[in-house]
Design a protein around this nucleic acid. Structure first.
Lengths: 199, 199
DNA sequence: GCAAATTAATGATTTATTCAAG
DNA sequence: CTTGAATAAATCATTAATTTGC
């Protein structure tokens, strides 16, 4: 919050380090996707992938590392950002549209509530459903063609997102948990959101 | 309902799931802090800690595990939530205050911008500075007082939070076995900040 | 006194916003 | 200006307090 006048937390001053010696002369600042990487990511996104599971991220990351240096978090962030910005883009478009079709907004803003975000949503929440991908080729096996490797169909839908919550809860191994009773064999083991993934 | 003022309820009077080892039923639900854990966390917060680094989270978590089952992520989330809710609380108070001192708000809402959240911030952003704690006792050495004893000065300063980033970045095994059937045991000493945590 | 029904707290996730590298 | 990275706000969901009818 706040950049307003208040304490701007300066984010990393960074000492650029990077461990590895990997790549080309990269200074190792932030990740910069290669065109190939970007293409794959974009394709996955277009195919409907929005919030990849931990497994998926791992897999994607591993595969993309072929094209250049990359880490899991980069994949994670990419999807986060891309999803958000696509949404934002669409929203803005419709706002502009509205704007264009009615010059006087004074009739509207009295409806604004002070601080809820709901008003934002109401503007244009067409929220594209996250498609359930039955078969999705994560990577070009040979180079181009799409084969059908199976990928989890763990996508959640907007109206039905509790399901995956429970799923997460149930499947979260939670470390040393001795509580064997919670067990329940899991067939798909990904905790989905990676944020947790490994706690 | 309600409690006007944040009374620390005596939780954990009932049969908790704690237990690491001898767990009884273990519902595997969400973490529920014991009073001791809560006290320590609260004290740390009061001491000025707001956004603990990965190291700090680890350490805190480890220490608190003495009082009962706990994971790193719980510590992380606790700080996130507590910080946010304290802020929220103060904000609400000042709103009520304003309300009380002026009945006509019509003079104000013309300032509202449609959908930015900034207007919310502007209401009362006194944001308490996150203090740089030089010496802070993280845990009661004996059992009672948290008051004065020394501990590491691992706090980050506003301009210097990269420490944990590097840590996170460096620790990225990313080896994960894809289809492990049951095991899927995740690392547990992993990094903490979850957002990245396992990258 | 005691559970079912309600309500308040708060742990856990998701979404929006901000910052700054390139 | 784009976008990777990070933080904060909002939201969801579950557990505990509390109330209520018996």
């Amino acid at each position: 919050m706040s950049s307003g006048g208040f304490s701007v937390k300066s984010r990393s001053l960074r000492g650029n380090n990077n461990g590895g010696g990997g790549g080309t002369g990269t200074k190792c600042g932030r990740w910069n996707p290669t065109v190939e990487q970007l293409k794959v990511l974009t394709d996955l996104f277009r195919a409907g992938l929005r919030t990849p599971t931990t497994d998926q991220i791992q897999k994607i990351s591993t595969e993309l590392s072929f094209y250049g240096k990359i880490e899991s978090k980069n994949v994670f962030y990419w999807f986060q950002n891309h999803k958000a910005r696509e949404r934002q883009k669409r929203r803005k478009i419709s706002i502009d549209f509205d704007h264009h079709h009615q010059n006087d907004i004074s009739t509207q803003h009295h409806l604004r509530q002070p601080s809820t975000r709901s008003d934002v949503y109401e503007i244009n929440e067409e929220e594209e459903e996250e498609k359930v991908i039955e078969t999705l080729q994560l990577f070009p096996v040979n180079n181009n063609t799409l084969e059908d490797s199976k990928v989890e169909k763990k996508m959640r839908s907007k109206c039905n997102n509790n399901q995956f919550r429970e799923y997460i809860r149930e499947n979260n191994p939670t470390i040393l948990s001795p509580y064997s009773s919670c067990g329940a064999e899991m067939e798909h083991l990904s905790p989905l959101d990676l944020r947790l993934s490994f706690f």
